[in-house]
Design a protein around this nucleic acid. Sequence first.
DNA 1: ACAAAAGTGTTACTTTTACACCCATGA
DNA 2: TCATGGGTGTAAAAGTAACACTTTTGT
Lengths: 256, 256
Amino acid sequence: MAPKSLRNLIFSGESAYLSSLSIDCVIFGFHDNQLKVLLLKVKNAKEWSLPGGFILPDEDVDEAAKRVLSERTGLSKIFLQQFRVFGRPDRTDPGFHRQFLKKEGLILKDDHWLLKRFVTIGYYALVEYSFVNPAPDSFSEWCGWKDVNNIPDLMMDHREILESALHTLQLHLNYHPIGYNLLPEKFTMPQLQKLYETILSKKLDRRNFQRKIISYKILKRLKEVKTGGAHKAPYLYRFDLKNYRKALKNGLHGGW
Amino acid sequence: MAPKSLRNLIFSGESAYLSSLSIDCVIFGFHDNQLKVLLLKVKNAKEWSLPGGFILPDEDVDEAAKRVLSERTGLSKIFLQQFRVFGRPDRTDPGFHRQFLKKEGLILKDDHWLLKRFVTIGYYALVEYSFVNPAPDSFSEWCGWKDVNNIPDLMMDHREILESALHTLQLHLNYHPIGYNLLPEKFTMPQLQKLYETILSKKLDRRNFQRKIISYKILKRLKEVKTGGAHKAPYLYRFDLKNYRKALKNGLHGGW
DNA sequence: ACAAAAGTGTTACTTTTACACCCATGA
DNA sequence: TCATGGGTGTAAAAGTAACACTTTTGT
């Protein structure tokens, strides 16, 4: 028997939400020097999915995305960026949902709202990995991080959405506080470099990277040092938010 | 008495289109060395509006935008780029539409679909000015070009949409064939420069601009020359499409 | 004492900037 | 012939790329 929350959504969602519109979020985190994405394991299927949801009749679309985000991560302050609408009529697969819900004991009529065509608004979010408490939604049996270089099969066009988000991340690197939102408050230069390398999927020269980042004057070097590593202890930095914001306005003229 | 096309839209639109979703297009053209936007004069109101429309139940969203575009301009091949969703619940003003339609002799019920909240998908389009045959839609009494520096009062949040499109245009300048789509096939260097200056709202050095553009190798200089001007005849250029496309893929590393 | 990570410095090369000069054209 | 727009050149400054060397740390 399907849980009540799922039945509720299925049978009263039509009036509760704007029809034909959904939201999908690509939530990025950074951990172990790797870029991670928060994914959900769909119940009764081998596919995974992006965190998503619907929009309340009087809800700001950005607000709806925030709601989805906070339901999956437990976080309230989240860097969120709309990046593209996916509107092909065949992007939704009625068979998929019908199959999945049948196994939950829920039979949908042909004209059920969930089986209709959905236009989805893609958001990407940047969160600090260690603050996140992943929580599955009622379609899913599990929620957690996956390495961006090791993504399982995703349902529908979620793979395309993810790729598109990654591409957007590259373009936004010089214009949005991406480092700030993905890294912990204090971090080392090699960490920041690794983040840039991962997003750009490109090796960067250690020394030139450092010099360039420093030249932007968006970092404050702390007295402290990262201990515990097996080698020379790197300095810790934190973002100088005031300068960072100012610099991002015109873009960090970076040919990376 | 309202024309039939308008009555049709008003009274059968609910079932004919996806609900709560619309499309708004910012159509750019370039003429007289100025950037122009195609606007519609709303009937019975002082405000103007962006060309817009709705999405058919089984229509690709991009396709719907193309349809709107071609209805307003008469063009079929159009450079079209989705750029943002506008989803604040209060962005639509039920009073506005009710007033306007009342003057057309159409009384709408409180729960009429047109008075509901709409999420709109913003597109910008680039067209070759001289090919366009502006045609008003059933909400409008006139359709035509307005200088981007001299925009009249726009309805709802259309001003914000336009500004956002302009900003996107700036960001896309190095990544999309903006010059190619806005200029006629043959054009002069000063024309291209003026286009860049307008989009960036910034003066550029004539000589450095020329050198930089040339260095991209995306232009072919023709033997011909633009005659009729009051001064030295400038060379004509055309884009070398093959190289242009290739160069845009990695972006024209331009600090303009 | 050594391997590996991290800090710092130098030099050649490319790109950007800020200019000056000459040419063609219509009034 | 002159004012104006347009083509071309050059030198200084800034930024980028490609390097080597030293310091620190755990084993």
